[in-house]
Design a protein around this nucleic acid. Structure first.
Length: 461
RNA sequence: GCGGAUAUAGCUCAGUUGGUUAGAGCACCAGUUUGUGGCACUGGGGGUCGCCGGUUCGAACCCGGUUAUUCGCCCCA
């Protein structure tokens, strides 16, 4: 018999871990609801056609594919089969795959249900996604995303809401973060200068690594890849970024842009509108305009945002990437045939947030408790009385257990102690004949005898 | 897809230049206490040293292969 094991990059979540994960999910979900988002769930499986071609070549490689049922090889092309050409064979033996993110399923859903949806459409989705990536620290093959998106409204107040959601949720979680934002319009200025979209995309990919490898690291990469004017563009962006306030950065940008670039003006206008909405409101975390933020290669077309940890309780060597990100994408549903639906959304990386809070040791201990009262019976005849009292306590909203059967008292109290149960209610021959119950507070060690009818009042004190 | 590290009890790990019966802590079970947990003490169960092969009188230890895990790179949450 082989030892049981898990597929790499997947994990079991023990009851202790799940209590904490639920704590995080609960706060994120509650925040989404407070801003008027409603839940959506989609299947783990999607048709491969829905998923493929949405995430670039690399993304397609990382899709988990599912073999067709029935005799899938019988239908495969004889020639391709003999050539052992996996890439050509895949479409013949696999029609379905596991979802890679929550945004593409959302787009599919909106297109399929366009007749039922009223725009602006605000939905949140908290579900696992799968990527056949190489696992490493903070990176899993099965992980959870918590997405909130608004479709069909281009007003910048949506972005303002999403930035508030980030701030509110992390404030409630008790994790200090920095919320960075930028506008793709600012970066698009450089496209002609960098001589083409390919260079520009690569440029954005490289500057996105600044957090990790620093200014010089990015500069080296740009020089190594010989991106035309890349070094100059990067130096300029970095210089602007070092200025203090968002307003100063915007002013510097205005002066630096020698031509009246349309997307730059749009980007700067939207950032100003955003600041007008947000600057009057209280904020718990830091929120910075970072003109070097690009969010890689994805489909973003307007505002982009990203959350990075900024909590000094996190050990210095515990480095992990961003824990949330999002932005505006025009024409998200275009690939599925529905044009001109703009969307803006954010995502919380649940697993990384969990890892960070765990490393920083900031999970509240209360999130571990479940049962409040345990009934311990000395003998079987005491069980009916325990069941009756347990029922009353549960009706009063108190989580209550009756220990199964009449085990040794030591064993029953051990159980209560390990589970962090506060009250042990002991029932033996004496208590049953007196109509009483011995109530022990397992935190203080105090023990009293009270009438069975008074049990609720006794433990409510 | 590429590179490094690791693999010994349920978990975290020791294990001397290769030498008799492979250890510790935690966890578990039992007892000290026939109805009282946490603390303490005593005892107990639990291992084909990842797997396959090689070197050797002798391998947990050395060599080769393999599988898995893990940390980086690419990319991403």
């Amino acid at each position: 018999m082989d030892k049981p094991s898990l597929p790499s990059g997947t994990r079991d979540f023990s009851p202790e871990v799940m209590m904490r994960r639920k704590h995080v999910i609960g706060i994120v979900e509650e925040t989404f609801k407070q801003f008027g988002f409603l839940p959506l769930e989609t299947p783990a499986l999607e048709n491969l056609k829905t998923l493929q071609g949405k995430y670039g070549d690399e993304g397609d490689q990382l899709l988990f594919k599912i073999l067709n049922n029935s005799d899938f090889l019988a239908k495969a092309d004889e020639k391709i089969l003999r050539q052992r050409d996996s890439k050509a064979l895949t479409p013949q033996i696999s029609d379905r795959g596991l979802r890679y993110d929550l945004t593409v399923p959302l787009a599919r859903f909106v297109v399929m249900n366009r007749d039922k949806i009223h725009f602006p459409f605000k939905r949140y989705q908290i579900q696992p996604v799968w990527r056949a990536d190489r696992p490493q620290k903070g990176r899993y093959r099965e992980f959870w995303q918590c997405d909130a998106d608004i479709l069909g409204s281009q007003n910048i107040s949506n972005e303002a809401d999403l930035l508030q959601i980030y701030d509110n949720a992390f404030a409630k979680l008790g994790l200090k973060v920095n919320i960075r934002f930028n506008h793709r319009g600012i970066l698009d200025v450089f496209e002609p200068w960098l001589q083409g979209a390919a260079n520009h995309n690569r440029f954005m990919q490289l500057i996105d690594k600044a957090d990790k490898i620093g200014f010089d690291g990015v500069l080296n990469e740009i020089n190594k890849e010989a991106i035309p004017n890349g070094a100059e563009a990067w130096t300029l962006l970095d210089k602007i970024n070092r200025m203090g306030s968002a307003e100063e950065k915007l002013n510097a940008l205005q002066h630096a842009a020698s031509i009246q670039h349309e997307t730059l003006q749009k980007g700067m206008l939207e950032i100003k509108q955003l600041l007008t909405l947000l600057n009057q409101l209280p904020v718990t975390n830091t929120r910075t305009l970072d003109v070097t933020l690009s969010r890689g290669l994805s489909y973003y077309t307007g505002m982009v945002m990203e959350v990075v940890p900024a909590d000094d309780r996190i050990p210095a060597d515990f480095r992990i990437g961003s824990i949330g990100g999002g932005g505006r994408y025009d024409n998200l549903t275009g690939v599925f045939g529905l044009k001109d639906v703009t969307g803006v959304g954010i995502s919380f990386g649940l697993d990384r947030i969990y890892d960070l809070m765990d490393a920083a040791g900031i999970f509240p201990t209360a999130s571990l408790q479940s049962t409040a009262v345990l009934f311990c019976c000395m003998d079987e005849p005491a069980l009916p009385a325990a069941f009756a009292m347990a029922r009353n306590l549960r009706d009063a909203g108190i989580a209550t257990e009756v220990y199964p059967g009449a085990a040794k008292l030591k064993k029953q109290l051990d159980y209560a102690n390990n589970k962090g149960i506060k009250w042990a209610c002991i029932l033996g021959e004496q208590e049953i004949s007196d109509g009483t119950v011995s109530v022990k507070n397992l935190i203080s060690g105090d023990q009293n005898i009270c009438p069975q009818s008074q049990i609720l009042q006794h433990i409510s004190q």
